[in-house]
């Protein structure tokens, strides 16, 4: 049993991180504001989770100027997508093993 739980990625334990990665799996890139409304979280909360995911190398941050404002958007890295898929597989295994 132990090894199954090991595969459950600690980085995806939080609902916010899981939400960010889920959205990035099906969208090429998403900006901060869209993610914020989608997940219904505060700026600070979202920012801290995003930087944690960035530190893991799961996503890359892109900043561009739209007029005078900066627009920050995020894209999942190959590594991040792979980690997410592994997490899904681990969840599947866990459910199967407990049937």
């Amino acid at each position: 049993m132990k090894h199954l739980i090991d595969n459950i990625n600690k980085s995806f334990e939080s609902r916010v991180r899981l939400g960010v990665m889920s959205s990035l799996m099906v969208n090429e890139s998403i900006d901060f504001l869209t993610l914020k409304t989608l997940l219904d979280v505060t700026d600070g909360n979202l920012a801290s989770h995003i930087s944690a995911l960035e530190a893991e190398g799961f996503l890359i941050v892109k900043k561009e100027f739209v007029g005078k404002k900066t627009k920050t958007s995020y894209t999942a890295t190959k590594f991040g997508k792979q980690a997410f898929m592994n997490h899904l597989k681990a969840l599947e295994q866990l459910i199967k093993s407990q049937k």
């Binding site: 609902r15 899981l18 939400g19 959205s23 998403i30 989608l38 899904l88 969840l91 459910i95």
Partner: peptide, 14 residues
């Protein structure tokens, strides 16, 4: 529950 959350987030965002 996590899988349901993932499915919902994917749908909501796309």
């Amino acid at each position: 529950q996590q899988l349901r959350d993932i499915k919902m987030m994917m749908e909501r965002s796309s």
